[in-house]
Design a protein around this nucleic acid. Structure first.
Lengths: 236, 236
DNA sequence: CACGCTACCGTACGCTGTACGTTAGACCGA
DNA sequence: TCGGTCTAACGTACAGCGTACGGTAGCGTG
């Protein structure tokens, strides 16, 4: 079938054969930058070492000079995003500041869908990255400032953290696939009201709350903060 | 290196060459049963169609007679687990019953770590499986019974659902890897107290709350329920 | 100029999911 | 009993994955 390449031994179907990239054309930062862009654009499952290398105009194995493997690269990418967290301004009462801090974390997560999934599934998590650790310290301090006891502060923090990641995870599913929302709409409309009366009745409200993730997050956050304030007032 | 096989043409290293399995030796239920067992025992990343087929004593491609592919098999496995949900007994006040229902969902999730991850990452979710839908209907009914308005009920449900899946996800990370907890312990002990004063101070409490996932879930659930009750009393 | 170090790279291996075509065995009408 | 048909089970093959390993080229230093 191949019409060309009649000369020489003719190795079958060479894959474009890039010329060797110059010596200084790679560094960890550049790699991570491209990796994050690819992850954001094409998603987690479309990502591969080969695709990343091609995007960088470089041979696949060149990446392994800077990262032990895909896992390490992913961890580094996740840490880079987490390190980009900037705590919100420190104004207002302790609970207002706590709320703002949570929302900031939530927005950071939802802004990087692929990275969030990395964070959620990473097996060996909690490396105590500096930025994450100081954010945690700050939030714990706010809870203590609100008057919570040692144990309550620790547990309330856990609650906020679990709710935040659970929310962000749900939202990236909706945001990433707008057509899924349409499917949700049709499914919920097709439910037999006699079998699921309440659900069918609340269909419009459920749809509304699904559409606006950020607002729904803040609603739940306020529910939790209500409980926390209750705790604080009780221990005062 | 191979010492044997001097005779005949000797096809190189045949892979044990199973004999053909009899006609009725496969069906969807049997496949799902084995798949779930494999997922629970070896985890999500160790699972493969080839491994499943071998476990069933069957050729790999035989599986494709019953499932279009790996995705469809995973969806079926997830639905099978979700269908095994049995709502708790209906005793006590509306908030007590709501609490019990949430805990039951949480326990269902944490009992099947691999399936939970399937559920969390599945791209096209929310198929409105019968069991899941009726559980949703029941919980919404309880919220309405508590006196919440239509919109509040929808949002409160969303909050509970987000928190529950966030919690379960965190817990399967801890449960699956007990050594991660030990690592967490050492890392948190090694933190410089002058940089993270509150965190270092609360280290013992944080460890305690990390160790017992179920208890921590119930704590956060009660925080949310406190907020929900507040809502209910306000609208009464 | 020569030498070594190392950043970049080509090849290859074992793994994956699965498209495609084949085969064997059960069933059925003659 | 015999062919025909239907289909569950299967073998092979292919593209793509992560990456171990060894090679190579170009810079820095002597």
């Amino acid at each position: 079938m191949p019409s060309e390449q009649s000369t020489a031994t003719a190795a079958p179907s060479r894959p474009a054969r890039r010329s060797r990239a110059p010596r200084g054309s790679l560094n960890p930062d550049l790699i991570l930058e491209h990796a994050l862009r690819l992850l954001d654009e094409r998603g987690l499952e479309a990502f591969s070492m080969r695709a990343l290398a091609e995007d960088l105009g470089v041979g696949t194995m060149a990446l392994y000079t800077y990262f032990r493997g895909k896992d390490e690269l992913f961890r580094a990418a996740r840490d880079r995003v987490l390190a980009g967290y900037t705590p919100p301004s420190t104004e207002g009462s302790w609970d207002q500041r706590l709320r703002a801090a949570c929302v900031a974390v939530h927005d950071l997560f939802t802004g990087r869908p692929a990275v969030l999934r990395l964070l959620a599934e990473s097996t060996a998590n909690d490396d105590f990255l500096d930025a994450a650790t100081s954010a945690m310290d700050r939030m714990l301090a706010l809870l203590r400032e609100g008057g919570l006891g040692r144990e309550d502060a620790a547990r309330a923090y856990g609650t906020l953290s679990r709710f935040t990641i659970g929310s962000a995870l749900r939202e990236i599913r909706v945001c990433a696939r707008p057509e899924a929302l349409e499917l949700f709409r049709s499914r919920i409309a097709a439910l037999p009201p006699e079998r699921f009366p309440v659900l069918a009745d609340l269909a419009p409200e459920l749809l509304l709350s699904t559409e606006n993730g950020r607002e729904q997050y803040e609603y739940g956050l306020d529910l939790i903060l209500c409980g926390i304030r209750d705790l604080a007032s009780r221990s005062a």
